[in-house]
Simulated scan of single mutants.
Amino acid sequence: MANKIELQLIDPLFDALQKERFVTISTIDHETGAPNVNAISWVLAPDRQRLYFALDTRSRILENIHKHPAAVINLLANESAYSIIGNAHVKIEKLEGVPLKLSLVELEISEVRDVMFYGSRISNEPQYAKTYDEKAAARLDQQVMDAMKKA
């Protein structure tokens, strides 16, 4: 039996995307046309139909989105794995209130699929640690999340 396809974020996913967290993004490489997967953490759901994420203005992900807007965010939450599918575009070229040169990208959600293999669940969500100054990292993360919320 196929999993149900949602047209927007369900409550547990919307709630999970109200703070910085580990996700992967898949885009189509602008040079090769092959799949391209990256890990990102500055992601936010401003509502159930959209995702925002912040990227360095020099990111290959941005080049990929400019040529091919199709993108997939893979999220581990709610004891499962989800693909959040849509078209992405740069909403803001240079995010204000952040010391880094970041662009804000908006993903307009077309589908949300539970892609966890049958008979299993995620028992522990991934965790990560910042490898630079902890206080500086926390300050930067807060600045980025605040700027995305204001967008």
Rank of each mutant, 00 (worst) to 15 (best):
E106T: 13
N38S: 14
M148E: 08
H68T: 12
N64T: 01
V23R: 13
R60V: 12
E93R: 08
N38C: 03
E108L: 11
I61P: 00
P69D: 09
A137W: 13
A71R: 05
A16D: 06
N78S: 12
I40R: 02
R60I: 10
L17N: 04
I10D: 00
R60G: 05
P126K: 02
I122V: 13
I65P: 05
H89M: 08
V72N: 05
K101S: 11
N124C: 06
A81L: 07
L17Q: 04
L13Y: 01
A138M: 11
I85L: 09
V115T: 09
E134K: 13
M116T: 15
E63A: 07
A77G: 02
Y132K: 11
P99C: 08
D133P: 13
P46C: 14
W42I: 03
T131E: 09
T24Y: 01
I73F: 12
I65T: 05
L62I: 15
P69T: 05
A2P: 12
L17S: 10
A151M: 15
V37L: 10
V72M: 04
A147F: 04
L7E: 02
L76R: 01
I73P: 04
E134W: 00
D47F: 12
D47M: 14
P126D: 01
T24D: 05
I40F: 05
A81W: 02
K67L: 15
V112C: 04
Y128T: 01
D11V: 03
I25N: 01
D56V: 04
P126V: 05
